[in-house]
Structures are given as C-alpha cells and as structure tokens.
Simulated scan of single mutants.
Amino acid sequence: MHRLEDIHFRDPYILALPSRKKYYLYGSIGQNVWSGPAIGFDAYESEDLVHWHGPIPCFRPPADFWSDHHYWAPEVYEWEGRYYMFASFKAEGIPRVTGVLVADQPEGPFTLWSRSLTPPDWECLDGTLYVDDHGDPWMIFCKEWVQVEDGEMYAVRLTPDLKGPIGQPVLLFRASEASWSIGSGEQHNRYVTDGPFLYRMQNNELVMMWSTTGQDGYTLGLARSISGKPQGPWKQDDSPLFTKNGGHGMLFRTFEGQLCLTIHAPNDHPNERPVIFPIQEKDGQLKLLDDDSK
C-alpha cells in the first residue's frame, strides 16, 4: 500500500465509483514524464483516499502503437457502460494530440479507441470531457504555447461514441487574458494553457479550472462561462485559486459528499506528487480548506 507522497504522478485525476466504493487515481508517470520511451499509464485504487493499492499497469502500448513518448494527463470517464481514457500522446515529428483509450474496467487494460480528437497539424494536450445539459459530449483542450506562444483553450463537440469531433474547434480564450498568467521567455510573450476541467457550480454557473505560469510558479485559476455553455464566452476570475507552484487540478466528490480538489505539487521534477484538498463552495466561489498557498 502507498500514500500519495509515495506516488510519483503529475496531472493527477481521481475517478470516484460509488458502485464499487473505490477511488481510482491516474496520472502522468513521473519517472519518464519528460524523456525516454514512455512506460504507459498506471492506476492506483483506494477505499479511503489515504491508502492506495498499486501501481496497476492499466495501459502498456503495443509494439505497433504510433506514439512512444510524452504520455500525459490521463482522465478516465464512465460512459455508456465502459471506461474511456482521454490522454496526450506524442511522437518525433508528429504533433502532440489528445487520443482516447477504452476498457471494460476502470483498472484496464485500456486499448486504443481513437487515435486523435484534435486537429492533425496542431500541437495540443490535456483534453477533458464535458457532457452538456443536452447530454452531448464535448472536449475542452489546449493548443500549446510551443506553437502559438500565447496558449489557447478550445472546445469541440464529439460524436456520441467519443471517436471523433463534430465540426471545428471553437476558441474560448488565450492564456494572457488572465491577469494572473505571467509570460515567460526573453520577450515575456509565452503563455501556458494547461489542465482544463469543467464544473457546474451549485448556483448553476459553469466554471473551468485551468493552470498557467504565475508569479510564484505553476498557478491554478478559474474562468466562468457567461452563457453557461462550454462554447462560452469565458471570463477570467481576478484572483487565482492556488498560487504556490502546483496545479493541473480536477474536482471530485467523496462518497460522503465532500467536494475535493487534486493537483500535483510542487511543479518541480522529480518532487511532484498528487495532493488532495477539501473544497468549500459558497456564494459562487471555491475555497481551498487547510491550505496556506495564498
């Protein structure tokens, strides 16, 4: 058994399954997140969010798999009786994409379902699934700063089987639109978009958590959809949610009903680890409990 501080993951994602009374943790395997051939993806399972069993090798690429490195940010969703993993993949000379894997069980084994949901000539990452009020699936994803400098956030509607996009992606915002996003590079014109996650607030507002580089390192903040739809338009909150060099967050509820945030922190390799914070939602705001990051 492991505790979170023992698990070297970036980009943590937790799937809570009430039917099994278990939580499943996925993430980018930290040991070779930046270099070397990718191992694949691992999962851990827990009944209490403290003690974790694993690693469970939920995906190992077959010999003929097209991508060989930068296996990042796996997110797993239960959809029509199966489990779908959205994740980023890269190969030399081929732009980074968000692809989809599928399995009959949350612990895998996962196999390829859709090679790419993102445009073939775009450098993209961190696709996240959102199901709108009509039951239609959407993917929110990032077009990377490495291609556009001012990182962009997009939404695209998906086919019901999650195999492909419907229509063209819609630009939602650029990273520099957030006052807490700090440009890097010699001309301070490189802005990061990273790790989107959508959440319907108790007051029915649709918000998006996303991460960028801030004054004190990796930073997590919120944008709000004025229309209440994934297409936006989106307005950035004035103040970020987490500022002390941690991010790529997602929200989930415990089996007792407590809203929680998981991120990786710090954002320094090889020290990054999954962290869980209880969250208070009040008056249209989210507040981290037991946190001294601000």
Results as ranks from 00 to 15, higher is better:
Thr159Arg: 11
Asp11Ile: 01
Ser46Met: 06
Val50Arg: 13
Ile226Arg: 15
Asn267Arg: 05
Asp283Ala: 15
Thr254Cys: 08
Thr243Glu: 06
Asn189Met: 03
Val131Asp: 14
Val50Trp: 02
Cys142Ala: 11
Gly81Leu: 05
Arg20Ser: 09
Lys21Asp: 04
Met85Tyr: 06
Ala223Ser: 15
Gly135Leu: 09
Ser179Met: 04
Glu281Arg: 11
Arg96Met: 08
His70Glu: 11
Ile56Tyr: 15
Met1Cys: 04
Leu286His: 14
Gly135Asn: 06
Gly185Pro: 10
Gln215Met: 07
Ile7Tyr: 00
Arg20Leu: 11
Met201Lys: 10
Cys58Thr: 14
Gln236Lys: 01
Ala223Asp: 01
Gly183Met: 09
Met209Cys: 14
Gln258Leu: 05
Pro160Ala: 08
Phe41Leu: 02
Lys90Cys: 06
Asp11Asn: 06
Ile94Leu: 14
Leu286Ala: 12
Asn204Gly: 08
Phe255Met: 12
Met208Lys: 01
Thr212Gly: 11
Gly99His: 07
Gly108Ser: 06
Glu144Ala: 06
Trp113Cys: 13
Phe242Asp: 10
Ile182Cys: 13
Gly185Thr: 03
Asp161Ser: 08
Pro61Tyr: 07
Met139Pro: 00
Phe242Gln: 10
Gly232Val: 00
Met209Pro: 08
Thr118Ala: 01
Cys124Gly: 05
Trp79Val: 02
Phe59Cys: 08
Gly214Glu: 07
Lys21Leu: 02
Tyr191Val: 10
Phe110Lys: 09
Asp268Gly: 10
Ser116Lys: 08
Pro233Ile: 06
Glu144Phe: 05
Asp64Ile: 10
Thr254His: 15
Asp194Gln: 12
Ala265Gly: 05
Phe86His: 00
Leu158Gln: 03
Tyr71Gln: 02
Ile94Val: 15
Gly217His: 08
Leu222Asn: 06
Pro233Asn: 02
Asp194Arg: 11
Gly99Met: 07
Phe255Val: 04
Leu251Thr: 10
Trp66Tyr: 13
Arg10Gly: 12
Pro12Ser: 05
Asp42Tyr: 15
Leu222Pro: 04
Ser88Gly: 09
Val102Asn: 02
Thr98Arg: 00
Val170Gly: 03
Ser181Glu: 13
Trp180His: 03
Glu186Arg: 05
